[in-house]
Design a binder for these strands. Structure first.
Length: 298
DNA sequence: AACGCGGGGTA
DNA sequence: TACCCAGCGTT
C-alpha cells in the first residue's frame, strides 16, 4: 500500500479549494436535506437535481411535511429527474421517519439502511455527510478514483467487489474529521477531475501517485454495454408518467393517442402487449392508479 | 451476478 | 449514436 497520509492531505486540500458549494453541503443543511439530496442524486447528475432539491426543501422542509403531502404532488415535484419510484420510496421513508424515529433522521447506518430506497451507499453517505460518522462511502466516483489511482485500471468493474470494499476501508483516514472530508473529497475528485470519459489529469492533485498514469493510462478491461432507450418499456413508462404529471387524469381509451401526441415516443409505436405491460407495471409499482375509466397519479 | 428502472447532457 | 450519471430492489 502506498503512503495514504500523503493522499489524504493532497486530496482533502484540493477539495478545500475546488469543491463545489452545493446547498446540501452547507453547515445549515439539515440531515433530512442531505438524505433528500442523496436519493435524488441516485443516477441523476448534480445540475439536474439542484433546482428540484431547492423547491422540494422549500415545500417539505421536514419528513413530517413530506409524509403528509399528496403523493400525486410528490411525483409532480419530482418532475423529470427519472426513476420516479425513488420519489415514492422517499415519501415512504418520510412516513417511516415519523412513525419509527420521531420525525428525525437516524445517524446509525444500519437504521438508515432499513429505510425504503436507502441502500449501502446512501446509508453511509448520510451517516458521514450529515452526522460526521466516518463510514466508508463507496459510490461510482470513488470506485473510479480507486480503480485508477491504486489499481491502475481505466474503469472499475460493473459490480462492486469485496476487494474494492477492503481497499476503500484501508484508504480511510484514522482521524474522524479527516475521514469525513476524505469521503467528500474523493467523490468530488471523481466528479470533477477523474471523470469517466475524459479525465483532466493535468488538474489532478495526485497525478504523481496515480497507478493508471504510471501504467500509461490503459483502456478499461471490459466494454460497457449501454442501456437501450428508444422503444423500451422505460421510455413508454416515462412518457405515460410525463403525461399524467401534466394532467389530472387520462381516459383509458385515449391513453395511447394522448401519450403518442406528446411526441415523447419519437417514431416508436408500442404494440398492445407493451402498452399493457407498462400500464400494469406502473399500477403494480404504485406510480399510477386506475378507476373504471381513468388513470391518474396516486 | 444480472437485470429493470428515466432522462438529458456530452463527445 | 453511445455513454454517463452521489444506486436500489428483485430475481
Amino acid at each position: 500500500m502506498m503512503n495514504t497520509t500523503a493522499l489524504h492531505h493532497k486530496i482533502t486540500r484540493w477539495f478545500d479549494h475546488h469543491g463545489r458549494d452545493l446547498p446540501w453541503r452547507r453547515p445549515d443543511c439539515s440531515p433530512w436535506g442531505v438524505l433528500v439530496s442523496e436519493v435524488m442524486l441516485q443516477q441523476t447528475p448534480v445540475v439536474r437535481v439542484l433546482p428540484v432539491w431547492t423547491e422540494w426543501m422549500h415545500r417539505w422542509p421536514t419528513p413530517a411535511d413530506l409524509a403528509q403531502a399528496p403523493t400525486a404532488e410528490v411525483l409532480r415535484a419530482w418532475g423529470n429527474l427519472g426513476y420516479p419510484r425513488r420519489a415514492l420510496r422517499l415519501q415512504s421513508t418520510a412516513t417511516a421517519l415519523v412513525e419509527r424515529f420521531h420525525g428525525t433522521v437516524p445517524a446509525d447506518p444500519a437504521q438508515l439502511r432499513s429505510l425504503p430506497g436507502i441502500g449501502d451507499y446512501t446509508a453511509a453517505a448520510v451517516s458521514s455527510f450529515a452526522f460526521g460518522i466516518p463510514e466508508t462511502v463507496i459510490d461510482t466516483n470513488i470506485r473510479r478514483v480507486h480503480a485508477r489511482l491504486v489499481n491502475g485500471k481505466g474503469l472499475p468493474h460493473t459490480s462492486l467487489t469485496a476487494a474494492e470494499k477492503r481497499l476503500a476501508q484501508q484508504l480511510m483516514p484514522d482521524d474522524t474529521s479527516t475521514a469525513n472530508q476524505w469521503n467528500k473529497a474523493v467523490m468530488e475528485l471523481g466528479a470533477l477531475v477523474c471523470t469517466a470519459r475524459s479525465p483532466s489529469c493535468a488538474a489532478c492533485p495526485v497525478l504523481s501517485e496515480c497507478a493508471w498514469i504510471a501504467a500509461g493510462k490503459p483502456d478499461p478491461d471490459y466494454q460497457p454495454t449501454g442501456q437501450a432507450w428508444h422503444g423500451t418499456d422505460r421510455q413508454l413508462r416515462g412518457a405515460i408518467m410525463g403525461l399524467l404529471r401534466a394532467r389530472d387524469s387520462v381516459d383509458r381509451a385515449e391513453l395511447r393517442s394522448a401519450v403518442t401526441a406528446t411526441g415523447k415516443l419519437g417514431t416508436h409505436r408500442p404494440n398492445d402487449s407493451q402498452w399493457e405491460r407498462c400500464v400494469s407495471g406502473l399500477l403494480h409499482d404504485g406510480l399510477i392508479v386506475a378507476t373504471k375509466q381513468h388513470l391518474t397519479l396516486p
